[in-house]
């Protein structure tokens, strides 16, 4: 098993004929992902890598039911594309676009919550269960990063994920499922909402979270551990310990204001709950070993 996506998960790709969409659809299929149809309004009847294209999600769903929607859609069309997938009854949606207006992100998350659906992203490179399935733009071919294994990874970042995951692999481990929740201030799905899936997954022995300054997602993870919602070993790397207050460090969500969202606070909360925290990415492999030995 793995979570969210595996070799059996049926996937439809919105924005399938675009530059990014067609490129990554090909890679998703090559890795073994079950891509059942693509969507581009007005391009029905075309094929991308033998995958049929439809003009709407609903039209595709009639012939090829899909469980997961992968959106390669520009920010200004993202809200509509997410709602289209929700309207078609899809419960897992991944959206990579950066720059969706914050108020639309609120509406997207609110709608997903009321439909009982999960929207992963935006501003993410997506999700991958190595060897099984991938939705997004993840270079699964980099073996020293995306090796199959039993560590669940949740991350707010892209290139930092490569950095940290390479350390997990260097430590002798691999990845069960990696989920990029994205770097925006309002991620569609929060770390804490994915923890129960990792808890239930027999193939996930421990979880690594790659957090950063700003927001409260890491603190929520600490609360979930304290409440025994999550009981497996957990190692966290949280970037931005030395970031000055009030400056936005890169991601929209990475800002410390009024003393909230500081890495110190996050690390304190996680350690109090019994999680292991790494000050540097290079410590993650060793800490995983220690955490798993103690479990």
């Amino acid at each position: 098993m793995s979570i969210f996506i595996d070799a059996a998960t049926t996937v439809e790709v919105q924005g399938a004929t675009g530059k990014e969409g067609s490129y990554w659809l090909k890679h998703m299929a090559e890795m073994g992902t079950r891509v059942v149809f693509g969507v581009t309004p007005g391009k029905e009847g075309q094929f991308v890598e033998n995958v049929p294209v439809f003009s709407s999600v609903q039209r595709g769903m009639k012939q090829h039911p899909a469980e997961l929607a992968m959106l390669f859609v520009p920010p200004r069309f993202t809200k509509d594309a997410v709602f289209e997938a929700l309207d078609a009854g899809i419960k897992k949606i991944v959206t990579i676009a950066e720059g969706v207006p914050a108020h639309e992100l609120l509406q997207i998350r609110r709608a997903a919550l009321s439909c009982g659906a999960f929207v992963i992203g935006g501003n993410t490179s997506g999700i991958i269960s190595p060897g099984k399935g991938m939705a997004g733009c993840i270079p699964y071919w980099i073996q020293r990063v995306y090796r199959k294994g039993d560590i669940g990874v949740m991350t707010r970042s892209g290139s930092l994920t490569n950095e940290v995951t390479a350390e997990i692999v260097k430590g002798g481990f691999g990845v069960s499922t990696l989920i990029g929740v994205g770097g925006d201030m309002i991620p569609g799905t929060r770390f804490v909402e994915l923890l129960p899936m990792y808890e239930k997954d027999p193939e996930t022995k421990a979880v690594v979270i790659i957090g950063e300054l700003g927001g409260t997602m890491e603190e929520e993870v600490a609360e979930a551990i304290e409440a025994k919602v999550f009981t497996k070993p957990l190692v966290a790397f949280v970037g931005g310990r030395t970031a000055p207050e009030g400056k936005r460090m890169g991601h929209a969500g990475a800002i410390v204001t009024g003393g909230r969202g500081s890495v110190t606070g996050k690390v304190k909360a996680l350690e109090k709950a019994g999680a292991f925290t790494a000050a540097k990415p290079s410590q993650v492999g060793q800490l995983l070993k220690e955490a798993m030995a103690r479990a």
Partner: peptide, 16 residues
């Protein structure tokens, strides 16, 4: 550097 998360981490590592 490239990537907000990685750049922020390098920023930390330089200070460390």
């Amino acid at each position: 550097c490239a990537g907000a998360g990685l750049t922020t981490t390098v920023f930390d590592l330089v200070h460390y």
